[in-house]
Simulated scan of single mutants.
Amino acid sequence: MTPTSSLLATFTPTGRLRASINLGNPILAYQGDDGRARGVSVDLAGEVARLLGVELELVVVDAAGKSVDVVASDQADIGFFAIDPVRGANIAFSAAYVLIEGCYLVKEHSPIRANEEVDQAVNRVVVGKGSAYDLFLTRTLQQAQILRSPTSPTVVDTFLQLSAEVAAGVKQQLEAGARRLGGLRLLDGHFMVIQQAMGTPKSRGEEAAAFLGSFVERMKASGFVADALARHRIEGASVAPAAA
């Protein structure tokens, strides 16, 4: 894990570690009472900066798609994303460090009772634009229509504003919306499990990608990720298993 001079030059071209932090996923990052970004991803970014011996600079965004764009365009050196083949065109991913459930939300009196009933032509599914759920459902839903809210945190409100049949996203985010607004329920189980990973622009080369991959495995094995989840009182997410 000792960084070489060549790694530092390619990994931190500005002399700082610029980390893209997405506040749209509350399991990984959120705005603290002091207005600063906090969370598991922020803690991991700080540890990478410490190992590299450089200052950390946070590039804070409010949606997953924006975070992808920031890293893919070299405006940040690392980011935190759900692994997806579309995103993999320009970003080199580590193995997953956290697993997160993607679930469906419906109105209390909806006739939909199971995940398998969602993909019907009469249903409109609201999802955060550019999120992992958007990418996954775009590939897998054959009949239901997909509607997109600006960000993942606005999914439940958009779902109600459009009077749609289904909302899709992070389980904890949907649960919070249901508690806040009432008259809503989650379908049992999940429609996907998100593999949340770290990533760096592919243009940084294999050494940078390998360093980030080794870092993630070390953070899982050492208990750092588990401790961060507990410290930030995150429920519903689990530490991913070691990479094969």
Rank of each mutant, 00 (worst) to 15 (best):
Arg50Cys: 01
Arg50Thr: 12
Leu51Pro: 01
Leu51Thr: 07
Leu52Asp: 06
Leu52Trp: 14
Leu52Thr: 10
Gly53Leu: 08
Gly53Glu: 05
Val54Asp: 11
Leu56Cys: 11
Leu58Asp: 06
Val59Asp: 09
Val61Asn: 05
Val61Thr: 13
Val61Ile: 08
Asp62Val: 05
Asp62Thr: 12
Ala63Val: 01
Ala63Tyr: 00
Ala64Met: 04
Ala64Trp: 00
Ala64Thr: 07
Ala64Gln: 11
Ala64Asp: 05
Gly65Asp: 02
Gly65Ile: 02
Gly65His: 05
Lys66Cys: 02
Val68Glu: 00
Asp69Phe: 11
Val71Ile: 04
Val71Lys: 02
Val71Pro: 01
Ala72Gln: 11
Ala72Val: 06
Ser73Thr: 15
Asp74Gly: 00
Asp74Phe: 01
Gln75Ser: 12
Ala76Ser: 08
Ala76Arg: 01
Ile78Gly: 00
Gly79Asp: 12
Phe80Ala: 00
Phe81Lys: 06
Ala82Lys: 08
Ile83Pro: 01
Ile83Lys: 12
Asp84Arg: 03
Asp84Gln: 11
Pro85Ala: 12
Val86Gln: 14
Gly88Arg: 14
Gly88Lys: 13
Ala89Val: 03
Asn90Trp: 11
Ile91Arg: 03
Ala92Arg: 11
Phe93Lys: 08
Ser94Gly: 09
Ser94Lys: 06
Ala96Met: 10
Tyr97Gln: 07
Leu99Gln: 12
Leu99Cys: 07
Ile100Ala: 00
Glu101Arg: 15
Gly102Asp: 15
Tyr104Arg: 01
Leu105Gln: 03
Val106Met: 13
Glu108Cys: 08
Glu108Leu: 14
His109Gln: 15
Ser110Ile: 05
Ser110Pro: 04
Pro111His: 05
Ile112Glu: 04
Ile112Leu: 09
Ile112Arg: 03
Arg113Phe: 05
Arg113Glu: 14
Ala114Arg: 13
Ala114Met: 12
Asn115Ala: 06
Glu117Arg: 02
Glu117Trp: 06
Val118Ala: 08
Asp119Arg: 04
Gln120Ala: 14
Gln120Leu: 08
Ala121Arg: 10
Ala121Pro: 00
Ala121Asn: 07
Asn123Thr: 09
Arg124Cys: 03
Arg124Trp: 11
Arg124Gln: 10
Val125Ala: 08
Val125Cys: 06
Val125Arg: 02
Val126His: 10
Val127Lys: 05
Gly128Val: 04
Lys129Tyr: 15
Lys129Pro: 01
Ser131Asp: 03
Ser131Ala: 08
Ala132Lys: 07
Ala132Met: 07
Asp134Gln: 08
Asp134Gly: 04
Asp134Trp: 03
Asp134Met: 08
Leu135Phe: 12
Leu137Ile: 04
Arg139Thr: 13
Thr140His: 10
Leu141Tyr: 09
Leu141Gly: 05
Leu141Trp: 06
Leu141Thr: 10
Gln142Ala: 15
Gln142Met: 10
Gln142Trp: 05
Gln142Cys: 08
